[in-house]
Nucleic acid binder design. Sequence first.
DNA 1: GTGAAAGCGCTAACAG
DNA 2: CTGTTAGCGCTTTCAC
Lengths: 367, 367
Amino acid sequence: MTEAVSRPTLEAVAARAGVSRATVSRVVNGGDGVRGPLAARVRKAVEELGYVPNQAARSLVTKRHDAVAVVIAEPETRVFADPFFALQLRGISKELTAHDNQLVLLLIEGRADHARVARYLAGNHVDGALVFSLHLDDPLPGLIQDAGVPTVFGGRPGWGQDPRNAGPGPARADADPGPVYVDCDNRGGARSAVRHLVGLGRRRIAHITGALDQTSAVDRLDGYRDVMAEVLGRDDPRLVVESDFTPGGGEDAMRELLGRCPDVDAVFAANDLTALGALRVLRAHGRRVPEDVAVIGFDDMVPVTEQADPPLTTVRQDIEEMGRLMARLLLRGLSGDRDGGGPAAGCPDAAGNGVILPTTLIRRASA
Amino acid sequence: MTEAVSRPTLEAVAARAGVSRATVSRVVNGGDGVRGPLAARVRKAVEELGYVPNQAARSLVTKRHDAVAVVIAEPETRVFADPFFALQLRGISKELTAHDNQLVLLLIEGRADHARVARYLAGNHVDGALVFSLHLDDPLPGLIQDAGVPTVFGGRPGWGQDPRNAGPGPARADADPGPVYVDCDNRGGARSAVRHLVGLGRRRIAHITGALDQTSAVDRLDGYRDVMAEVLGRDDPRLVVESDFTPGGGEDAMRELLGRCPDVDAVFAANDLTALGALRVLRAHGRRVPEDVAVIGFDDMVPVTEQADPPLTTVRQDIEEMGRLMARLLLRGLSGDRDGGGPAAGCPDAAGNGVILPTTLIRRASA
DNA sequence: GTGAAAGCGCTAACAG
DNA sequence: CTGTTAGCGCTTTCAC
């Protein structure tokens, strides 16, 4: 743990190159309007001295930080049990890195952390924020609004005025643009899963929901209901069990389901982890998958789905791409900066202020 | 994505409270030596204006950033498949938060990223760094050394001069202290696992290693060999298969093992994920676990071990605590800052510059 | 094109 | 105890 060395300053580089600080600054920041040979001399001096600009000093004058906060508002352990979060981070990291931005990670573990995060965001330490895993009653959106930090949400926020989630619609450019977010087509994905089960000839199709205080869970439930109502013309409430996106929750739900409807012949689980729990209970009860009961998950966490027994049919969403897209949207908004118009304006695939990524059904053995 | 508002400055607070900037600064930074009523007036002004200090300006003069970089040098997908990384991050985050430090996440995906990270670290943007997942040939340690950033490593670095990993020994205070790191007792944990298998009456005990370019894998292998040599008086090389910490790798290794030694009666896998793969192959080959073959993992990733079939006996390490400890060590070193002495000096549980956390054998059904 | 000068918002001596 | 005074290292008008 060596002592931090004091780095050379602009001044030093200027002296060595025999120019003024201003010139060095210009060269370091792209070199516009500095003649070739001079610029070369400066670059040489920079090289020799190992000069690295002091970001604090720079930020002080530019008011930019080239840093983005990633806020993960998941007090529970769930985030840590499934790789969702890591994949999302990876996508974000790649995109930020490509634009020379830093990633400041803000984990919210408990109630008290909200204030801390809000303070940080308000402190003008970052140029923007990427926020995940919002629950319906989360105070964060309000705090962020107050802080006035440009923000992109991961997953449709619950308070947005546009509950449509199934496809692009004409966006009214004049209204309050509402929150900017990136999500996958939860509702459409759920529909395709249930339709697939229907196509398999299944009729008593159950749904194990996710945590219903999150829009992703609600949207998937809606998709399930869409198909049950439209295609089968019925929507038996006994076939829906509320759960929480965890394997344990999936087990409990599956047991409940087996009790309620012993003749269930298919299960659409709100995510892969839940499906895993269901699979285990089905096996314990001697039901064969998919012969007796077909099972479909959601997410396609490859290590989970491929290693499941039997390998899990699921609805895939490109999580890493979602992360990347969130970062891109934020960065674009930051550079655009015409504060009147919505920042996602001109963005392809945008439905209103949300960008909805498509999902794909991945067929494996379980359905 | 609202426009960032321009925040009030110290100046503004000073004016409103009718004092000088210096006084406000004092109050904001702990309020030492400011009389009660005055301080109260300042605090009121701060409150009313919603003043938040500008960290950039502060850093510029204090040369502190209250920020720590977390570098994850795992180009592969492995980190994202197991929750190890997330747990570690959580521990770090908690500790940093408690000390009002920010966490800057630096993910290394490819070769080019090393330079970027090195530049960032050298740029004096953070007070210290926490570095993970080092492989033997990693250029990072050198780069970090050059950057002169106080650093604590997660896992014993390969080039450290103290390969002992099995317990505390007298540390020589005068020599080059070497890298500071936190690790679990990989070797001791491996020993306890193998001893447990021996105690079960098993004799043909195999080991599926981790990626041997990481010290954790090497240390676990050493622990295995210790017991095989000491207790059983032999060390059959055919019983050791090199693998890579992944479930897929575990499957391949188990197949290989079954081919080499069909009469194997126990497997100690380098981690839980590997054990999972082994379990699957054993089942496919009709071997009962634990009756025919006992299986032990390492890590105790609860979602993995408890959901395994059968539930996995394993060696538990407290990953979150490791993260927390790394952060604590770094922060302590930063505040101590007597640059001669080793920064971990005076730290309990320290063997040399490494802190080794104990492991526990968790008995479940698989062994 | 290039340099000189004026701060960005804050802390840390140093006076008073 | 409190205020005054210098900068921290950089960017950015503004002259030249």
